[in-house]
Every structure is written in C-alpha cells, then in structure tokens.
C-alpha cells in the first residue's frame, strides 16, 4: 500500500469502532414468503433463550453510549483474568458518522449487536454458534454458511484476536473472535466472542430491503416506527447541531475523571469514563472539528485511558500480567 493510500484509508476510519461497522445489505432468502417469519424481537428472544440454555448469564445493555458491544464491561473487562465467564446481551451501538438521516436503507448511527462471550472458549464453540443460527430459522442445508478469515484489532482497547466473519450466502452476519490480548494483556484463558449484526440478520430472515421495514414485534410495529425519527434527529444533531465547545469540554472532563478514578484505584468507573471520552471523540469526528493532525493524539489519549483501566482492573484483582 502506498503512503497516500494508507492516509486516505486512515482518514476514513473511526476511533471507537472496535469492530468494523456492519453495513446492512438488503437481503431476503427467497421470493416466496417464509413459513413463519420471526420478528426482530423474536430473534432476540430466541437468541436469549438459546444462549441462556447454554449457561450464559443474559445481561441487559450497558447504559452508556458505545461504538460496539465489545466495549461492554462484560466483554472488555471480563475478558481479563482467569475466571470463567459466559454471558450474552444485546448492546445498542452508536456510530455518529454512520448516520444517514434515515435516508439510507442499510445504514444507521444507532443499531443493535448481539454479543456472546464464552470464556474459556469451549471446544465446540463453532457448533454452538451454528446451532444458534438454526434456532433463529437459518437452515444450513439451504444456505451457504462459511467461516472466512477476519482478524480483529482494536488499537483503542489495546486488543486483538483471530477469527472469522461468518458468511451466510455471501453476507457477513457475525464476527467470531478468539481474544488473544485485551488492554495490552494476554488473555489467560482466551475468550470466544460472537457478535451478531441483529438488523442485518433480521433483514435476511424477514426478506426486507430496508431496515425501516423490519417487522419489529409481529404485531404491526415496524423498526421504522420506532427508530426513523430517532435516526433523523440524531443525524442532524451529530453532524450539525452538537455544541462542539461543550463536547471538547466533556472530553476533557471525562479524561480528567478517568485519571481521578485511576488514582483512586477504581478501574470500573475509570473504564466508564474512557468509554465516555471515546464516544465524545466520535461525536467530535462527526462534527468534523478534529483535524487529521489532532486525531492521532486524541486517539492516543483514549487508548491510554482504556489501557490504564484494564491495567487497574488487573491490579485490583491481583492478577499478574
């Protein structure tokens, strides 16, 4: 890759995107109406049911803005240390720059990921995953399901892992990662992380061409009924209205508070402030007020906070690197 290309590419990336954004192609599985189509919420409930049966703690979404489910403490912090941990949850993800004012049928600034974390990674994790697809109505003898190399790295979290993107008839429906490092620490033991793109899966299962046409509850409420206004207003705010002075101030305050927490040896609140700083940074990016030159230094600050929090978490629990 030439230098120029590298820069062109880098300028299009996004700090908090621990996972690359799910673009959401409109997909349906056949022209004929499927027998009994699951609604958006039924897909979630089926997954909850399924993973609950596998012994996962079913958590609720983290109550803070974040760019990916991986940022949830149930993933990031629980990936550290020796204790076994199995959990599943839905996490709303906010990616301000992906907003399209509700006009793009495949892109949202707010959407849902379904996260599963299994630690240590069980030997039959691939089969467990495939069975979860069957549970939501995807027949592997009718659809082409494939594990295609896709390694994951989050410089923000000082984390990386190896795994795949899972394809269903050529569409990426899940990211499957074996965490190797988190916050710069080796994962001992390694956790397996599954991230389903819920809207994308639902569009596939329901055979609709626009996110907004998704059947949300099977009783007349569409995804658009719930979220279209949200997308329009939030896009406008993210791109045009958000007070950048306030945002810069928030960023600095979050940084300060994170450092304060780290000093007090409180890794969880420190980590929350790191997430906050990361999201505020993303908003500033969407407002286009961070120059390329400054960008790297902002990213570096967020990374230091996140890594510092992980380090404090290890220390608090008395775990050696």
């Amino acid at each position: 890759m030439t230098l120029l290309r590298a820069f062109a590419k880098a300028s299009a990336t996004h700090i908090a995107l621990a996972k690359k954004a799910f673009t959401l192609p409109d997909t349906n599985l056949s022209q004929k109406p499927p027998k009994k189509v699951l609604s958006f919420q039924q897909i979630i409930l089926k997954l909850h049911d399924y993973w609950s049966e596998q012994g996962c703690a079913i958590l609720q979404p983290y109550d803070m803005e974040m760019g990916a489910g991986t940022f949830h403490t149930a993933t990031t912090l629980r990936a550290l240390g020796p204790d076994p941990w199995n959990a599943a949850f839905v996490q709303p993800c906010r990616r301000p720059t992906d907003g399209r004012y509700g006009e793009n049928p495949n892109r949202l600034q707010h959407y849902y990921q379904y996260q599963v974390i299994l630690k240590p990674s069980p030997p039959d994790i691939q089969q467990l995953y495939l069975d979860s697809l069957t549970a939501i109505g995807i027949d592997p003898m009718l659809h082409d399901i494939r594990f295609v190399e896709d390694d994951w790295e989050s410089p923000t979290l000082g984390a990386w892992g190896l795994g795949w993107e899972v394809w269903c008839d050529g569409m990426e429906v899940t990211q499957f990662t074996y965490f190797q490092q988190m916050g710069g620490f080796d994962c001992k033991p390694v956790a397996g992380e599954l991230t389903y793109g819920l809207e994308r899966l639902a569009m596939y299962i329901q055979g609709v061409d626009s996110i907004y046409d998704l059947d949300y509850n099977g009783a007349g409420v569409s995804y658009g009924d719930i979220f279209l206004d949200n997308e329009k207003q939030m896009s406008e705010w993210n791109f045009e209205v958000a007070n950048t002075e306030t945002l810069f101030d928030l960023f600095n305050k979050a940084v300060g508070e994170c450092e304060n927490c780290l000093e007090a040896k409180l890794p969880i609140p420190a980590y929350e402030q790191a997430i906050k700083a990361s999201h505020v940074f993303n908003l500033l990016q969407a407002r286009g007020v961070i120059s390329v030159q400054e960008r790297a230094s902002y990213m570096g600050r967020v990374r230091d906070l996140a890594k510092g929090s992980c380090e404090a978490y290890m220390a608090k629990n008395g775990w050696a690197a």
Partner: peptide, 21 residues
C-alpha cells in the same frame, strides 16, 4: 460449499442481494 436442498436457489438469491447492496 454445499449441494443445497433446493439446488442452490436460495443461495443464489442471497448472494444476489448482497452484491446488489
């Protein structure tokens, strides 16, 4: 990667959708 039960119709339809997007 499979000999699908419907001869691949659903697979083709799915892939067509993805490429179209």
């Amino acid at each position: 990667n499979i000999d699908a039960t419907d001869g691949g119709k659903a697979i083709v339809a799915g892939n067509e959708k993805v490429l179209a997007a």
